[in-house]
Design a protein around this nucleic acid. Structure first.
Length: 529
RNA sequence: CGCGGGGUAGAGCAGCUCGGUAGCUCGUCAGGCCCAUAACCUGAAGGUCAGUUGGUUCAAAUCCACUCCCCGCAACCA
């Protein structure tokens, strides 16, 4: 069942405005999974990117007095910076305006047209003359007003190409049945079937003539490809599908030994779970193994939106609290797969409780004691000496097992909780073994040595399990424990006691405790900007 | 009857898939410890799990039905 290679993707984000913490959420969680797989020695190809076409971009660019390309270039520059700040380890970044992508989309269109899966029809919708834009029923609302300019809209129709979904509905339903783990959480599958397929799936409109910022259709250049056939194709065009260099595509997409995983938000589930498999069927390509739908990070007063002025920009958070704290918060606070809310109070509390009080303080007190009692030298492992040694080792073993099973299943939040069990058990272990008392008794030196060794090893394991999240702090932990480069390998956590006979190197506090009221105010100030 | 998610101690959440002592973090109170980042450890108070609803069962937070309330989506805002 376990595959040896992984291909994991985020959606490609729309560069009509700056990214907010919701984008950071999705990308960070995907990154954690990619790093985890690589840490365990698997090849993992991680893709993210930008979806740069469409009317909204065309319009925003005009407003900014730029060409669409100049406009998106500027915004995408911000994407790069954010991913760099978050230490996102993507292997590639696809932009739908790149030549490598455009050609593939045009070829795919041609192939589907020839095959008869695409036909020319009429698109009917609400049209705003002033904005020269089509809108959907829900966008115009009961009063049929343009969501942009507020003027009244009229029904209108234009010539457009459609993808014939009827050819693939039965195949798709069978695919769902044959692959129960394709779409997770499972409730999403029912939603797809009940909401969209059962009532009668409409054909998908895939071209427009009302604007020009898009990939032109070769066979009929007054049309540009509209959204999803363009956007979804990124997952394979980035790998070199339909190019002179299909090596990555063969290795990470077509090879059944590679597990392909799309991470996406609930709002675009339909496109990924219904149309994308259909497109791939039409092209006779392999389908993704898993699509994982994550929840939305909401603000206390509802969904993040510019009009509410409650958008959280991740940059100042990273600047003030560090990349590890922000990544940790995103992964731990909200259960991956469910909706959650961002609040400054919870942000500060999470970091203080888990990172400062538990993990940071544990490292600090351990290193201090090793300094004090053994002149900085971690004693060698000598088996289970004190009454509590076995218990701690068992917790570590259990945590590792849990962590791996959960993370393999994309249960990232739960996996972190499993890793944290080692930390809290170690803190308790200190109180149980009372090393300061052992230190006063010459007959208890062996016990004391064992306690210090167990603590160092427990912290090593916790640090390793958290490494996909704490991209800089884990190495700082290992530095303080004096663990050499060649010992910093994931497989070493299976051998409790491997750390020993090395000199610790006390450093700065890993995560200084934050002042709740000061920091909450600071974050609130960031949100107002 | 559009679709989905949710209503569990003062706050924020887990548990519900596979029914059977209601768990975690913060806060509060009491104690311990002194290695440590006023951190760490122990204990206590506080909830009968939206519904003075119906059903299944020896037994329901957990399954079924109904009702009420909140949120998201509704065919380009992760």
């Amino acid at each position: 069942m376990t595959k040896k290679r992984f291909y994991i993707t985020t959606p490609i984000y729309y560069p009509s405005a700056k990214l907010h913490i919701g984008h950071a959420y999705c990308t960070t969680l995907t990154d954690i999974f990619a790093r985890y797989k690589r840490l365990r020695g698997f090849e993992c190809y991680f893709l993210t990117g930008a979806d740069e076409h469409g009317q909204k971009i065309e319009k925003n660019a005009a407003l900014a007095g730029k060409s669409p390309q100049e406009f998106v270039d500027g915004i995408v520059e911000g994407f790069y910076k954010l991913w760099e700040a978050l230490h996102i380890s993507n292997n590639d970044f696809i932009r739908t305006t790149q030549e490598r992508h455009i050609k593939v989309v045009q070829d795919i269109f041609s192939a589907m047209l020839e095959k008869g899966d695409i036909y020319l029809g009429k698109y009917k919708g609400w049209y705003c003359k002033d904005c020269e834009a089509f809108w959907t029923d829900t966008q115009v609302g009961e009063h049929h007003l343009c969501p942009d300019c507020g003027r009244e809209v009229q029904t209108a129709e234009e010539e457009a190409y459609f993808f014939r979904t009827s050819n693939y509905i039965d195949k798709l339903l069978k695919f769902y049945d044959d692959n129960p783990k394709f779409l997770l959480p499972e409730s999403r599958k029912n939603e797809m079937i009940n909401t969209f397929i059962k009532p009668g799936l409409e054909d998908l409109c895939i071209s427009r003539t009302s604007f020009s910022w898009g990939i032109p259709i070769r066979e009929n250049p007054k049309h540009v490809i509209y959204v999803w056939l363009d956007a979804l194709t990124n997952y394979i065009s980035a790998l070199g599908y339909d190019s002179d260099h299909p090596e990555l595509f063969n290795k990470f997409w077509q090879d059944s030994e590679c597990e392909t995983i799309h991470i996406l938000g609930a709002d675009i589930t339909r496109f990924h779970a219904i149309y994308w498999p259909m497109f791939l069927m039409s092209l006779n390509l392999r389908l993704p193994d898993r699509e994982f739908v994550h929840g939305l990070l909401m603000m206390k007063d509802g969904k993040m939106s510019k009009s509410k002025g409650n958008v959280v920009d991740p940059f100042p958070l990273i600047e003030r609290y560090g990349v590890d704290a922000v990544r940790y918060y995103l992964a731990r606070e909200v259960t991956f797969g469910q909706d959650g809310a961002f609040t400054p109070e919870q942000f500060v509390e999470r970091i203080n409780v888990d990172l400062a009080n538990s993990l940071g303080n544990l490292l600090n007190r351990t290193v201090s004691m090793i300094d004090k009692y053994f002149e900085g030298m971690i004693p060698a492992y000598q088996g289970q000496v004190t009454l509590f040694d076995q218990g701690l080792e068992e917790v570590a073993k259990h945590s590792i097992e849990q962590y791996e099973a959960l993370l393999d299943d994309l249960k990232i939040t739960e996996a972190i909780i499993a890793a944290n069990e080692i930390v809290s058990s170690a803190n308790k272990y200190i109180d149980q073994t009372t090393p300061w008392a052992l230190a006063k008794d010459p007959a208890k030196q062996k016990d004391l040595a064992s306690v210090m060794n167990h603590l160092a090893n427990a912290i090593f394991i916790a640090g390793m399990l958290l490494k996909p999240v704490l991209v800089t702090a884990s190495d700082k932990i290992f530095d303080q424990l004096g663990i050499s480069e060649d010992l910093r390998k994931y497989e070493n956590i299976y051998q409790f006691g491997i750390i020993g006979n090395v000199k610790v190197q006390k450093g700065e506090q890993l995560f200084p405790r934050l002042d709740q009221s000061v920091e909450v105010e600071a974050i609130q100030a960031m949100m107002k900007k």
